[in-house]
Structures are given as structure tokens and as C-alpha cells.
Design a binder for these strands. Structure first.
Lengths: 220, 220
DNA sequence: CGAGTGCCGGGAAAATTTCACGACGTTGCA
DNA sequence: TGCAACGTCGTGAAATTTTCCCGGCACTCG
């Protein structure tokens, strides 16, 4: 391990998946995994203490999600390089992640080479998008339908995600360290922006746009 | 690799995740990964040609899902040993998987040791359930998420269906020729009976129980 | 018959949703 | 450089909805 090795922080709530990253990245010279986190809050903490050259981050995690973690890290260090590596093959998520400050977006469907390539690109200062997401983005541009990701600010999108995942307004307020009133206001604003009247329509729209997938229903 | 090695088929649609399995399992003597599949159909095909001692299978995959793949494999070979390894920390999925013929259920949240232990247990003929799912199953038996069709009266069930499909309380009231007040009362009663606090949870529960199917979301 | 249950809705309190408004920091652009 | 636009956070008050408690009606079953 030379001093010139690029240091990496892995963020994913599944330990075996992190093991997979490691295995793939270890084969690549010049890279060194220096820390691992299982959720957004831990990622933020470790970023501050370890100051890695690159963060590889999943999006769907317990507590504060990947988008919010990206926001916080970028707020702490404007130059932070974050590569999103997620199962969500969805243009909306990609748009939100990039807006929040991510420098790359690769799906877990991609072959390992794509991940390695993206890591190298981001470290070299480029923006890296995996081909399937490029395709999704192209499609969403053609169909021209305004997705939730287009009209919502990052903060609103994060609240939407938590609304779909967490239970109560109070819990979300605590997670985001804001007043319950603010969450309620955002909840209302989100429905307004998306043109739905009820929470039921909101969930249906989220399902159609892939913001909430069937796999997310797991946490009973 | 001795002839006595237990042969394993890995099934997961994310290649990097398969890499993670491999990395963890390689450290364990007596195990040998002989094939990998990225979806249910390929898993079935490979099982027939490779006849592995054990299948480690994810549930959420494109095309035919894990549950259906388990069913087909067990139909082909009644003695097939299949260990489910998935992100779904959900008692309902576990029950479904076991019923379909799986011999074990471990979540991806689990530490690698738990997976290894489960692999050994299943190979030894035992049933392996990870602790978190044990806990979920216990919970579901105690406070049990009552199935909607079970606790709801026909009228309530009808209102639930319309709530998921129609938009407003007023429209439902008109459809059923009752006062909006009654619909609102029933709406509240339904949530109470199903043990959910918000409409969002209500929709999620309906999705889990198949009352609302994801394919049926087309009509806005 | 009487007890239990499903179904319907009124009234009022409680909670939430919505709207209007202001403050603050950042971004971007002229 | 200044200033307009925007995102974020929050308050207060009105409007609406949700929830709880209530009674009435019809039907079934032992």
C-alpha cells in the first residue's frame, strides 16, 4: 500500500455486499478501502474522521438515506467525491443523487468492470454514469413526463422517501433534525407539486415512478 | 477441491453481490461454488444441469422471482436444498419461501458468519432461519399483521378496495350510495382494524397482501 | 326472544392539512 | 459588487379531516 493509494469509504447496509465491493476493488492496484459504514449517519461520521478520496454509497439504507448523506457530506466538504452504487435502476434517483452532489451513479446490475471504471473516472474528476442509467435518462427525456425528481428539491425528495418508508411525521422530523411542522409543510408541498390530493395517490405515483419499489415493502 | 466438497449454485441478479458471497464462502473449507445465475429461469436451468448440493438464492430478481424458482426446482427435485439470502426482513416473505420449499432464510443484513452458519446447517439437513427473521416471525405471531380479508367485513373490504382505486371520499360515497361521513368513518375503522396509523401504511399493507397489485397502477 | 354483529350516519372534540408570511443563507447572474 | 431567485425552516391561524362516542336499523343464530 503506497502512500499514493486512493482511499475509499464503503457505505452499504448489507455486510456481504460490502464484501463484494472489497473483493472487486482489491484486484485493482492503487485503491485502498479504509472504512465501511452501514448507514448514512455513520457514513457522515466516518467521512469527517477519515477524509477518504472517494465514497462508494448505496442509497436505500435505514435511518437517513443515501441522498441525505450525500447532502451532508458535500455540505461538510464541497470537494467530496461520492459514487452512488445502488440497485435502483431509475432515472429519478440518479437525477436526485447527482443534484445532491454525487459524482457518479452505477447500478448493482452492472458488471464489476463498470464499477471499477466508474471509480477510476470519478477519482480522475469525471462524472460516471452506468450505461443502463444513461438509457433510462434518455428515455425519460423522450417521454417528457415530469417525474417527481424533476420538480422536487433534494430536501423534498428526501422527505418523500422517508414518508414512504418511515411511519410518522414526528419520526421523520427527528431523523432530519427539523420541527414536525416543517415536515408537515413539506408533505403538503410535495403533494401540491406532484399534483396529488391524497397520500394514497402519492404512494401510487411513487410506485409508478419507481421511487418506492416492491422490495421496499419488506420492513413490515 | 476434493470430491467431497459441497457444490453450490449462487443466484442473485447483482454480480457484485455474488462476488460477495464467493468471497465469504471461499474462506470456508469444504464448499465450492460451481455455478452462478442472475435470474430464476437461469437458476432452474443450471440446477438441472449441475445438480448442486445447495442453492443460495435471492428473492427479488427480474423475470420469474425467487419464490417461483424455488417451487420449480423443488418440483424437479424434491430433495433440493435451497437457502434464501435476501434483503427482505419480512416474516411474510420468509413464510412464503419456506412454504415453497426453501430450507433456510437469511437476510443480507446478517453478518457473514450467519450466512456461513446457515449454509452449514442446511447442508447438514437442518432448517436455518436468521435471528432477525426469527424475531419478525415471533412478532407477527404476537401482534400479527392481520390479513385484511380476514378481519374486515365485506363492506369494509369493498371500501378499502375503492380507497386504493378511487380518489376522494366523496366519489366513493357516491359509488356506494352512502354519505361521505360513512365512508370517512369506515376509512378510520379500517385503519384501526388493520393496525395502521396512516394511509401510506395502509397502501403498503395492501401491496404486501396483494389487494393492490403493482401492475394495476397504470390508470392514474 | 335476546344477544351478537354488520351497516349507516350524526355531533363534537382532536388532530392534521393547508395557506400566508417572514427569516436566513446560497447561488447565479447582470 | 449587488441583488434577485431559490431552497430551507419555522410560526400562526383557518379550514378540513380524522377520530371517538353515540344511537338506530336489519339480520342471524341459539
Amino acid at each position: 500500500m503506497s502512500a499514493a493509494d486512493a482511499t475509499i469509504l464503503l457505505v452499504d447496509d448489507h455486510s456481504v455486499v460490502r464484501e463484494g465491493y472489497r473483493s472487486v476493488l482489491q484486484k485493482q492496484p492503487g485503491l485502498r478501502v479504509v472504512a465501511e459504514a452501514a448507514d448514512g449517519a455513520e457514513a457522515y461520521r466516518l467521512f469527517k474522521s477519515e477524509a477518504p478520496d472517494l465514497v462508494i454509497m448505496d442509497l436505500s439504507m435505514p435511518g437517513i438515506g443515501g441522498i441525505e448523506a450525500i447532502r451532508r457530506i458535500r455540505q461538510w466538504d464541497k470537494g467530496a467525491r461520492i459514487l452512488v452504487f445502488t440497485m435502483h435502476q431509475n432515472a429519478g434517483f440518479a437525477v436526485q443523487a447527482i443534484r445532491a452532489g454525487a459524482r457518479g451513479y452505477v447500478t448493482k446490475m452492472s458488471p464489476p468492470e463498470t464499477l471499477v471504471r466508474a471509480v477510476m473516472d470519478v477519482l480522475a474528476g469525471k462524472i460516471a454514469i452506468s450505461p443502463d442509467i444513461d438509457h433510462e435518462l434518455a428515455l425519460s427525456r423522450i417521454s417528457g413526463e415530469s417525474s417527481a425528481a424533476d420538480v422536487l428539491t433534494p430536501r423534498e425528495f428526501e422527505v418523500l422517501r422517508l414518508l414512504l418508508a418511515e411511519q410518522t411525521t414526528e419520526e421523520i422530523a427527528e431523523t432530519l433534525h427539523v420541527s414536525p411542522k416543517t415536515v408537515a409543510n413539506l408533505h403538503s408541498l410535495i403533494k401540491d407539486k406532484l399534483g396529488v390530493d391524497s397520500d394514497i395517490e402519492l404512494v401510487r405515483l411513487a410506485l409508478r415512478q419507481g421511487i418506492l419499489t416492491q422490495v421496499d415493502l419488506g420492513e413490515a
